[in-house]
């Protein structure tokens, strides 16, 4: 342990103490000898650059050398997770959020109710009435692929979604993504989401996601290649392609026997 904890974890009871010992011993099985200097050098070599291109470079450096088949799925997750974590752990944001700003990530799980000493008298003033934020209507959303990057057989698409409606609306943090072509064919179909959160998008505000895809071995696709999102109510939003002839989101065929992969990261400001 080389650094201070920002917050102490809740104390363990006797079972948890034993469990922690056992799990930590079990976890030692994940440790392998490493060459820290080599890892640092590789990280530096692949981490240099800027923006999304850096992320693609990271995949090319590590995954390309190691020959792993599926690279793209993991490339951006840590950034998103790290960014989420960063908000409460002293990390500076990469860039200021443009105005008008959204966005709250709203856990759908109800928070636990803490024991409390409730006041015995009713509040004197009634709370102000707040209009509920409704789910985004398909007609009020516009999405566009703004970039495709890739490495080691995968492609990473950056998609910007705008709430073109007059009021704020709510969207699941992750939808089911699809890689689609200009003829409307679904080239790779993603999984239904399991992410518990949602995002609220102010009127006129934008959110961004990255969509990873890999291993397309099907028939020739028709330009342009883009991304679609299937919402939980069955609505489907097709993002405008980067350009009318763009095919750069189409991943290489890594193995005809293997399934294609497409997945998205949570919408974020």
């Amino acid at each position: 342990m080389t650094s201070q904890r920002p917050e102490r974890p809740e104390p363990f009871d006797a079972f948890e103490t034993r469990l922690a010992t056992r799990v930590t011993r079990h976890a030692d099985r994940g440790v392998r000898p490493i060459d820290a200097g080599h890892i640092a050098h590789e990280a530096a070599a692949t981490g240099r650059g800027s923006g999304v291109a850096r992320r693609a470079g990271a995949g090319a450096g590590f995954l390309g050398r190691l020959g792993w088949l599926v690279a793209g799925a993991a490339l951006a997750a840590g950034l998103i997770g790290g960014a989420s974590w960063a908000g409460s752990h002293g990390l500076l944001g990469a860039a200021p959020t443009p105005s008008p700003t959204l966005v709250a990530v709203v856990p759908t799980e109800a928070p636990s109710v803490e024991p409390s000493t409730a006041p015995t008298t009713a509040p004197v003033t009634a709370p102000p009435t707040v209009a509920p934020i409704l789910a985004c209507a398909l007609a009020d959303l516009a999405a566009r692929v703004t970039a495709w990057d890739g490495a080691a057989g995968n492609r990473i698409g950056t998609v910007v979604l705008t709430n073109t409606g007059a009021v704020a609306c709510k969207l699941q943090a992750i939808e089911r993504p699809q890689l689609v072509d200009g003829a409307g064919t679904v080239l790779i179909d993603g999984d239904d989401p399991s992410h518990p959160g949602s995002v609220e998008i102010a009127a006129g505000a934008r959110v961004t996601t990255e969509v990873d895809d890999a291993n397309y071995c099907g028939p020739a696709a028709v330009a342009p290649v883009s991304v679609a999102f299937v919402f939980s109510n069955g609505d489907r939003l097709v993002a405008a392609a980067k350009s009318p002839t763009d095919m750069s989101g189409l991943p290489d065929c890594l193995g005809p026997g293997g399934p294609g992969l497409v997945q998205m990261h949570p919408w974020a400001p």
């Binding site: 990280a43 981490g47 590590f62």
Partner: peptide, 18 residues
């Protein structure tokens, strides 16, 4: 996979204790 991301982001760490 985490290390290149750390390389890019470590400069944004305000508190080394974190």
């Amino acid at each position: 996979l985490a290390w290149p991301k750390v390389w890019r982001k470590v400069g944004t760490l305000r508190d080394p204790g974190h």
